[in-house]
Design a binder for these strands. Structure first.
Lengths: 232, 232
DNA sequence: TCGACTTTGTGCATAGCTTCACAAAGGCAC
DNA sequence: GTGCCTTTGTGAAGCTATGCACAAAGTCGA
């Protein structure tokens, strides 16, 4: 039974807000690079593609970091959001499954730039073990537990085939990992206290197809374009 | 101003429901492969990792396809969900940007199996153009408009660098595409009527880091483990 | 045919998220 | 100072999603 204790500065940030903070952070970094010193909620909201009231409410969960009449100090806000997200520390990430997707992830620059360090690449296929990818040598999946413990891995990325995902998942949890990013198209069963986030390419396409079909067959349409009385 | 017109069988399916339908579909396909003929909402909900009341409410938006006392016919439900999602037709997909991620996507089996046919691979880099990947020859990005029109592409996957994404996005929209799956870490500006879904690997990791940090520093914790009176 | 049992479909209460609208707070010119 | 202007932070209202709980509807055995 997990129960939150309200604290002095309540850390109960809504999930929806947490999911947007990285977006704000990215927009702020762009502004910092262009030399912008302060930004209003209106402008930042525009850059992040959200409503400005929502942005202000999101930021208000972190504290009161703005200045009325002026806006937010870009550098200061970057620091506060980074701290809140835990990006001021270094996270060791292991990628399990070095197929096409695993390789793409290993080479993806967006990780390293945010405090995520790839600390291990593992695969069960002996033909892949030993390959050097993005500066790391692929290790055998048998080494999973030892890699996690020796290198302090706290986040595991699953890029294995669907059939292997649950088994690998069980092993990394047994090894003490409680944060998993799952690319395999399966619903993982995990105990309480373990966070799983899922990225499913096929599901995203299916959602797009739904809306695309709807656009084609008079779904949500311009009311003006619908011939009067044609309702079937 | 877009306004929905309620229809005889109201097609106003909530977004949250649409996002879960592919999940149900996957679970149902697994059951069909194992020869299951009917399934109760309880069992299907378990397989899909959702609450059974939610599952029933989701399915009730499609119609009344269950039999009280028995459950749902697996094959029939597969058909109904597929039809609703638009998977009974063939969708031509083009992937723009054939870097590591683009290659992984091109080789990803999950697309073809659901009515998504990769109809084009494009890249701006002359060293990549001409490569054969997953049975297709990479074409130059200059051919974008012609590929979209000649092959009836209706969904475009953006796997370009962030800097090129908006420009490519503008071009595919000008060519008539209204559904985009964006892997580039930018907020795309698009006109009304265009659907963009975003997959952002770095954001997912940041969300995990937030929760991981919270687990480490007395965030949501076991109430029992918190020393009495220590509230700062 | 009947009654016990199973499971759906949904009304309702609740929780969470979004958006509006505005008072409070601060900067700046004079 | 003083007053005007800008922008934040947030109360309140409305909307969407969730989950309980149960009546309605169907199956199945006797």
């Amino acid at each position: 039974m997990i129960r939150r204790i309200p604290q002095a500065r309540d850390r109960g940030i809504p999930d929806a807000t947490v999911a947007r903070l990285p977006l704000y952070l990215r927009a702020l970094n762009g502004m910092a690079e262009r030399g912008t010193a302060t930004v209003s909620s209106e402008d930042l909201a525009l850059a992040a593609g959200v409503n400005s009231a929502k942005l202000r409410k999101d930021l208000s969960h972190l504290g009161s970091y703005g200045t009325r009449g002026v806006g937010y100090d870009v550098q200061y806000l970057i620091y506060q959001i980074s701290r809140e997200l835990g990006l001021t520390q270094d996270w060791a990430v292991a990628i399990v499954g070095v197929g096409n997707l695993g390789r793409a992830l290993a080479n993806y620059g967006g990780f390293a730039s945010r405090g995520f360090r790839i600390a291990g690449l593992l695969d069960a296929d002996p033909h892949v073990v030993g390959d050097r990818i993005a500066g790391l040598v692929v290790e055998h999946a048998d080494e999973l537990e030892s890699v996690i413990k020796k290198r302090g891995v706290s986040i595991v990325v699953l890029a294995t085939p669907a059939t292997a995902a649950q088994q690998v998942c069980d092993r990394v949890i047994a090894a003490g990992v409680t944060s998993i990013l799952n690319f395999a198209p399966v619903v993982l069963a995990v105990p309480d206290g373990v966070d799983v986030r899922k990225v499913d390419l096929s599901i995203e396409l299916q959602i797009l197809a739904f809306h695309e079909q709807r656009k084609a067959n008079g779904g949500p349409i311009m009311a003006e374009e619908w011939p009067d009385g044609v309702v079937m």
